[in-house]
Amino acid sequence: MQDLVAAGAWTNEPERAVLDGDVLRVTAVEGSDAWRTTSYGFVHDSEHALLQLTEGSFAVEASFVLDHSEQFDQAGVFLRVDDRNWIKGGVEFSDGVQQLGAVVTHEFSDWSVAPVPEWAGRVVTVRASRDGDAVTIRAWADGEEPRLVRVAHLAADAVVSAGLFCAAPTRAGLTVTFTGYRGGAPDTSLH
């Protein structure tokens, strides 16, 4: 975590970010989000993503305490090429339940989710693995095996910055407690 904080840069400064040993507590600005056009008609590029430039194939993991409680509270990992091409994977509170999902944006955003109410209050890890023209997103709660969330396209020649993120589209006061962050080699297999 300390390496990311020292070498990374925020896409948008959060209200507050406090590093305490290996724990990073990030308080999101009300109205922060990442979305482009689809269905809603708006563009939001105000998420709080702490990113580092990557090269070639890689994987990043972010772990956090899942205590989201308001509509669209969210945290996880973020891969950014530019403001029109990016991928976020994580857990978002939507329609009264924790939802594991991903948003893939190539000019327009799409969204996939699956409910994980049993993860509430636990430490969740989200992993994005980039190899060639693919990003594989997996996630799990402590004590569980990783589950596949999404396989998405990302141009093999794209220059990518990657790291952790959070956002609070509908409220003030969301503080995400990130308990770990790791980077390394990509996954060796899809299954």
Results as ranks from 00 to 15, higher is better:
R138W: 09
W86M: 15
L154I: 08
A128P: 05
A75R: 01
W86L: 09
S112T: 14
L79E: 05
D110M: 12
A134V: 10
V159M: 06
Q99V: 02
P115T: 02
V91E: 11
D45P: 04
G96E: 06
D83P: 13
V97Y: 08
F93A: 01
A75N: 09
P146M: 00
W111Q: 04
R147N: 03
T105K: 14
H153I: 10
A139S: 05
V60C: 12
S129Y: 00
L53K: 14
A75S: 12
S112F: 03
F78I: 10
V160R: 03
V113L: 11
Q71V: 04
D142P: 02
A59W: 13
H153F: 15
S39N: 11
S129G: 00
D45K: 08
L50D: 13
V43T: 12
F93M: 07
Q74T: 00
V43Y: 06
Q52M: 15
V97C: 13
V91R: 10
A59P: 06
S57C: 15
W111R: 01
F72Y: 15
D67Q: 12
R122W: 12
F93Q: 01
A152M: 06
G121A: 05
H153P: 11
I137Q: 08
G41I: 06
V116P: 01
F64C: 02
A152W: 10
Q71W: 06
V77R: 07
E55W: 02
A59R: 15
L148I: 01
A75G: 03
D110A: 10
V160G: 06
V126M: 04
V81E: 13
D133I: 07
F58P: 09
A141W: 00
R80K: 12
V126I: 11
A156E: 10
V149E: 05
L148G: 01
E118G: 13
E145H: 05
A155C: 03
G56H: 07
E55Q: 10
H68D: 07
S39C: 08
K88Q: 13
R138M: 06
H153Q: 08
S63I: 04
V126Q: 02
S69E: 08
E61C: 08
D83Y: 14
S69I: 05
R150L: 00
V65D: 15
T54S: 13
G96I: 01
